[in-house]
Structure formats: structure tokens, C-alpha cells
Design a protein around this nucleic acid. Structure first.
Lengths: 333, 333
DNA sequence: TTGAAAGCGTTACCAA
DNA sequence: TTGGTAACGCTTTCAA
């Protein structure tokens, strides 16, 4: 590591530019309030001395940290990565920085994570979970900053929310499968109760079956696998066909799971979609036309992040933004 | 947004516990230096008042921010997501928080990004790019904190580095393809000069051809596509077979690209690996046994992040850690 | 083991 | 348009 650095202080810039620290501060935060010539002199001094402001001091003094915290369950599995990307880029454009923590699906620790973020006095907080522990909920409600819950439209949001209805999406894709002629549709997903969104998609699937007066739900949720593990799809399809051999379409709770189902179908020599249709969820990169060409539900991951960033940077009032979803038909169904 | 919050100050905790603020501070940072009974009294007051320390003030006073900055080109495309996951989790265990910025492959802005991070006075900085602008380089060298470059072993690292040799990996997988009987091997990848790692894999590919005295390099790099776009693989395979029809194996610069190649092969009715063998790079989740079953190079993405976190939290001295890679043979080659 | 005082580097507030 | 002064909430340092 390089030698301990001595940071240049604002007062040194002030001396060099023959102004007070207040003027330097103004040049940085509201240059329009400073006479152009003064401004230039200060900027020259800043460049010359290589001054980098200390945001901790700024935050302490101004009570604005220009930081936004994000609590994400995981970055693996493609699901939230693009959302964090959208957050990060959009926040930066608005002059904020992103403090990120991955909770790895451990709700018990949620309150600790939230407290750790709040210790930085962020100007906003973003969460991908919409289910909270009592302690977490209390901390969030009393934080006094915009809170945005993502990837769902909670019935009773803490503050704001940006997402779409997982239940409506599950229903829509199931109805779509029915519309294109599939009468016996199964659901392959994850069993974890902590995966609220997966549960909602499954509920949507059941809604569709009921609405169309099809059969009783055919649900398979292989246990003991990680989130979005393709094996869930492979094992799931196997179990599905064992229990209900006449199943002609499966809706998988995510594209990764659908990939596993596709792989298992191929292994069995089953034609897709002739023998078994497969639909996924997410429209991850791999689902694209020149990839798996998967029929799936496209959800606006990046936009969710970008929109959440805007809500916070514009200090919008409480709102719930439904960004919708889209059925994308490709060749697997 | 909830009403503006009045945060509880340490001095209020001190009053409630009938001690000085210093004792409260000690309870938080080094409880072993405080008499157990005092400790308990203070902790009770903290819980009772719902005190959440202000890290900005702490950072300002102690000159330790307990924040580590990470500059990542992108989170999409699966490449760095698991590394950031590893970073985030491991840093948290060590009591640090992660400040994340995605640069979206814009090297001109690198210096701005670095300066923005340095403004938080992080205790360490992690970068996925190993090529820097002059300005960026200067800032990094003089930052006075541990800097860790990831996913490559730079010849002249700024400080520390954690990764593997992309060139050796490209060479190894190409030699592997030769070993299993392929005499005419092509490379499909990305053309961007900013993608140093892709270039190095390609160089490794050429190394292998030369070493085995095979043919002249057969390199195809479809232009105008995003990083890790499966279309690059689809278009790449098409072009490869047009220019060198007898090609019997392709090494793709990433698993996403390999997915595109696989898709194109299927579209053409080409057997894999009978007619054309395909190898990828990365061993992303989709490459797994129950997914694409792709022959690929496994790289320790998560571990790279975790190890970088350790280097920083343990204030290790300058070092370059080679975490290696692994050829994973599945069914596509 | 505990406490008092003096910063840490910036910005709010008010005055000139 | 600019500057002086007093915080901001914590930790360092030194003394008790």
C-alpha cells in the first residue's frame, strides 16, 4: 500500500485562492452563487493542489450524506444485478453514491443490516425484500428518509415501491400458455417461504387455472437447492412428468429454472415445445432470441433500479410505481 | 417519506447511562476496555433509546471510514456479480461496508469515479479494470490505502491484485480442445479494445495454436454488440463457418457467447460436439451440468471478491494472488 | 476503568 | 458576492 496520504484540506485551497473556506465550499456546491472570476481562481487552486473534498465532514455538517443504501438478497442468479446496475448509474448521474449490502436471504439479520446502513445516514434506502421483521420494519418507518421497496407492489408499502405484480405476471403467462392450446400446465419453482415473489407467481398460476376452469394445480418445488438453480428445473420436470405424465407445458418460476427444464427435456428426447412447452420468468440475457429463445415474462429490472433512484433523488412523495411486465413469446412455448 | 427524524446522539445515551460519551464510544468499539456492569448499563441505554451511531462523525474523527469502494465495469452479463457478492459478504463480516459504482466501460470517466470514491475516504479500493488512465493511475497511487485490482494478474500492479491469468486460461482451454482431438479451432469473442481480458484470452488461444503448430489463428469478433451478448456467438459461429468451413471447435470468450454459438449450431442442425465443439469461459450458472452442460473454464469469481476483501480488512502488504482456473469438461466439447 | 477537552473538515447562519 | 463563527457527533489524547 502506498504511504499514508496527507489529504489537502479545504482551508489550504482557500489560502491558495485567497478566499475563505466558505467560498471554496460554494464553488463546489453552488457555483452559481460565486462570481465567475473567483470561481475560476478557486477551481485552479483545487486542480493545482489535487484537492478531494471529504464527504464525511460534509455529511456531518450538512446532514446530507449523498449516499443511498441498497439491501439486496443476492447479486448472483442474474435477478437483481441489472436492478443494481440501474440504481448505481442513475444515482451517480444525480450525484449520489451507492452503499450496497447483500443479505444472502437471512431475514433474521435484516434489522442489523438496516441499522448498519442507517449509521451512514443515507439520503434514501432501497430494498429488494418486501417482507420485514418487526425490528426491521420499525427502523425503516422511523428512518425519516425515502424508502423504496423493489420488485413487487406491496399491499402496505413502508413508503414507496417500484415494481410489478408478480401474481398478475404468473397469471398472465399461465393464461398465455392456455391460450396457445395447452390444457395441462404445471408449475416448477422454489419452495422457500422466504421467496415471496416466487410464491406470488405460483398464486398467479393458480388464479389462471381457476379462471380457465382447467385442472387442479400441478406444483413441483424441488427442495434443498439454491435460489435459481437450474437443477430445480431438471428435477422439477422429472417429478412433474412422473406425477402427471400428460402435462404438456410448464411455467418455471425463473429463467434459470426453465433452463434446467429445457436441459432435462432434451436429455429425455422430448421435443420443445411439441412434447413439452416451457416458459420462464425474467427474460434474463440467456433467454434471448439467439440464446435459449425462451418464452418468458420480461420484467424491467434495470428500469426498476433507475426509477427507484429517481424517486429518491427527486425526493418524490410516497408512491407505488407499477412498471408492468411483458409476455415474450419465442420458441419454447 | 416518514417525518424528519431526530437522531439520538451519543451524549444522550451517555446521560441515560450516567457515563461520559467516551465510555459509550468504548462500549461500541472496544467493549473489553469497559467494566462489564458499565457496559451493560450503556447497552441497555442504547437499546432503550434506539441509538444508531453516526458513522460520518466517527469517520471524521477517527480517520477510518470502515467503507471499501468497488469500481466495477458492469453487474450485468453475470461476470462480476458473484465477485461483488463475495466482496460484500466478506467485507461485512469484517465490519466494513461496500460503496459500489459501475463504470459501464467508460474509461474516460475513471478518474472522476475514483475521485468520487476517495471523497468518502475509503479504507480500501477494489477495481475490476487493470488498465487505467493517467489521471486515474495518479489518484490511485497517491491514495494511501490498499488498492486491489481484480480478475487479472497485471504485470505492474498498482498495489495488490487477486485473479488469474486470462492468457494462461485461454491457452489451456485451447490446448484442451486440441488434446481431445480438434485440429481446427476457432476463437469467437468481442472486439472491444477496452476488454483487456478478452484480448488476453485470445492471445492465449494464439499461444496454444503456435505451441501445437496447428493452423493460423481463426478469429471472429462480431462488431457492434454489447459485452457478453449471445448474438456475438451466433453471428460469430456463422462467420467462422463461412470463412473456415472445416472448423471443428470454437473457443468463445465467455459462456454467454458460447450460448449463442450453441443456439446457432442447433439452428443449423449441427451436432454438438459431433459436428462442432463449443467451449465457453466463466462457468456461469447457466453452464452447469443441468443447464447448458457447457465445457468451459471455471474462474473463482466469488472467491476473488472474498479474497480481495480479506486483503483489505487485514491490511495485508502488497501482493498478487493467483487463484487459478479450471477446465471443466461437460458435453459440448 | 473513566472522563474532560480539543479537535476531525466541512457547512449553516448571519453579518458585512 | 463574500467572510467569520459556531456547530455537526464522534474519537483522540492525556490526565485522573
Amino acid at each position: 500500500m502506498p504511504d499514508e496520504r496527507r489529504w489537502v484540506r479545504m482551508s489550504e485551497v482557500a489560502v491558495a485562492a485567497k478566499v475563505s473556506t466558505m467560498t471554496v465550499s460554494r464553488v463546489l456546491r453552488s457555483p452559481e452563487k460565486v462570481r465567475p472570476e473567483t470561481c475560476e481562481r478557486v477551481e485552479a487552486a483545487i486542480r493545482h493542489l489535487g484537492y478531494v473534498p471529504d464527504e464525511s465532514a460534509s455529511a456531518l455538517s450538512s446532514r446530507r450524506s449523498r449516499v443511498v443504501g441498497a439491501l439486496v438478497s443476492t447479486l448472483g442468479g442474474s435477478v437483481f444485478a441489472s436492478t443494481v446496475d440501474g440504481l448505481s448509474q442513475t444515482l451517480r448521474e444525480a450525484g449520489y453514491q451507492l452503499l450496497l449490502a447483500t443479505t444472502n436471504y437471512t431475514p433474521e439479520l435484516e434489522a442489523d443490516f438496516i441499522a448498519a446502513m442507517l449509521a451512514r445516514r443515507p439520503d434514501g434506502l432501497v430494498l429488494t425484500s418486501t417482507q420485514h421483521t418487526r425490528a426491521g420494519h420499525r427502523l425503516l418507518r422511523s428512518a425519516g428518509i425515502p424508502i423504496v421497496e423493489l420488485w413487487e407492489l406491496p399491499e402496505r408499502p413502508i413508503d414507496s415501491a417500484v415494481g410489478f405484480s408478480n401474481r398478475a405476471a404468473g397469471k398472465a403467462i399461465t393464461e398465455f400458455l392456455a391460450d396457445i392450446g395447452h390444457q395441462r400446465i404445471g408449475f416448477v419453482g422454489r419452495p422457500e417461504p422466504s421467496d415471496t415473489r416466487g410464491q406470488l407467481r405460483r398464486a398467479g398460476y393458480e388464479d389462471a387455472l381457476a379462471k380457465r376452469s382447467l385442472h387442479a394445480p400441478r406444483i413441483v418445488t424441488p427442495a434443498g437447492l439454491g435460489t435459481d438453480d437450474p437443477r430445480a428445473g431438471a428435477m422439477g420436470l422429472t417429478e412433474m412428468l412422473a406425477r402427471w405424465p400428460d402435462t404438456c407445458a410448464v411455467f418455471c418460476s425463473s429463467d434459470s429454472v426453465a433452463l434446467g427444464a429445457l436441459s432435462e427435456a432434451r436429455r429425455r428426447g422430448l421435443g420443445v415445445p411439441a412434447d413439452i412447452a416451457v416458459a420462464g420468468f425474467g427474460d434474463f440475457e440467456m433467454a434471448s432470441e439467439h440464446g435459449l429463445a425462451l418464452t418468458t415474462v420480461r420484467v424491467p429490472g434495470f428500469t426498476i433500479g433507475a426509477q427507484a433512484a429517481r424517486l429518491i433523488s427527486q425526493a418524490s412523495k410516497r408512491c407505488v410505481v407499477d412498471l408492468g411486465f411483458q409476455i415474450v413469446r419465442r420458441i419454447t412455448a
